[in-house]
Simulated assay, not measured.
Amino acid sequence: MNSLQIDFKKSPDGLVPAVVQDVDTGKVLMLGYMNVEALEQTQREGKVTFFSRSKQRLWTKGEESGNYLLVKQIAVDCDQDSLLIKAEPLGPVCHTGADTCWDEKNHREDFLACLEETIAERRLHGDPENSYVARLFGKGINKIAQKVGEEAVELVIESKDHDDGLFLNEAADLLFHYLILLNAKGYNLQDVTNVLRERHKN
């Protein structure tokens, strides 16, 4: 069943390290070890399964907590003695309750991606009395689109002057409201990037 070329014989105990990375954020979530059977079960069931050195048996991450790691891609390193598994985590990964086994928050390092996540969260759970974003979403798509237009005009006006601080602040306002508009329409910045990437190919 294992079509990946792994040299399990390099290790005396037949185990190879398997690094698990979040397929969306790129964060390293945890490190475990796999033998032939663990890798085969991982491929077969689509859930990351390790060989537990403490339990001395196969162990599927999340088998008790329900916080499974759903496999999206498996890669082998150049020496064929370690694995990189890109997965979707269904909850915190570490047994301590942390997002990762290094006690890091599992989010994209890209600030704009983090900002988009904040906008999405405020849209769903924000209190309109305390959140500008939630309040703006409550006014509907017409008001959101209008705000983008207003910010665009203000940026154009500031571009004709020589106050760099005001220009950059207006640019930030426009980008912020543009991200809100994208979310309101069911899209994100990556969707726009994909369009630009396709254009660049032509």
Rank of each mutant, 00 (worst) to 15 (best):
E117P: 04
I141A: 12
G126D: 11
N106E: 11
I74T: 11
L84V: 13
I74V: 15
L58K: 06
L174C: 03
L175K: 09
V195K: 10
A120N: 08
S131C: 06
V133N: 05
F51V: 02
Y33R: 13
D191S: 08
K185T: 11
D13H: 01
Q190H: 13
R199W: 13
N67G: 08
K160H: 12
L189K: 10
G138R: 07
K9F: 02
G91H: 04
L39F: 01
P89L: 08
D163V: 09
Q190Y: 11
L181N: 05
K61C: 07
G149K: 07
N35G: 02
Q56I: 01
L189Q: 10
A184S: 13
F137R: 12
Q21T: 14
F51M: 03
C78Q: 15
L179G: 04
E45W: 11
A98E: 01
C114Y: 00
V76M: 05
D81M: 02
E116T: 11
R122Y: 02
K61E: 09
K201T: 12
D161H: 14
M34C: 14
R197N: 13
L136K: 01
R108L: 09
A134R: 14
R57K: 15
E109K: 15
T96I: 09
A184R: 10
N35M: 03
T49A: 09
L39V: 13
L70D: 06
G62T: 01
E151H: 10
K55L: 12
G138I: 14
L69I: 07
V156Y: 14
E154V: 07
S131N: 02
S52A: 04
Q21R: 15
K201N: 14
N67P: 08
K147N: 13
R199F: 13
H95C: 02
S52C: 12
D81F: 04
Y33A: 08
H95Y: 09
K86V: 01
R199P: 00
E170S: 00
F8C: 03
D77T: 03
L179N: 04
E151W: 05
E64P: 03
A75I: 00
F8R: 01
D164K: 01
F51R: 00
R122W: 00
V28H: 14
A152N: 03
D7H: 09
M1Q: 10
N130E: 15
A87Y: 07
L90H: 09
G32R: 05
L15M: 07
V28N: 13
N169Q: 07
L179W: 09
Q5P: 00
T60I: 04
K86R: 15
I74M: 08
L182K: 06
L39G: 10
D161F: 05
H95T: 07
G126V: 08
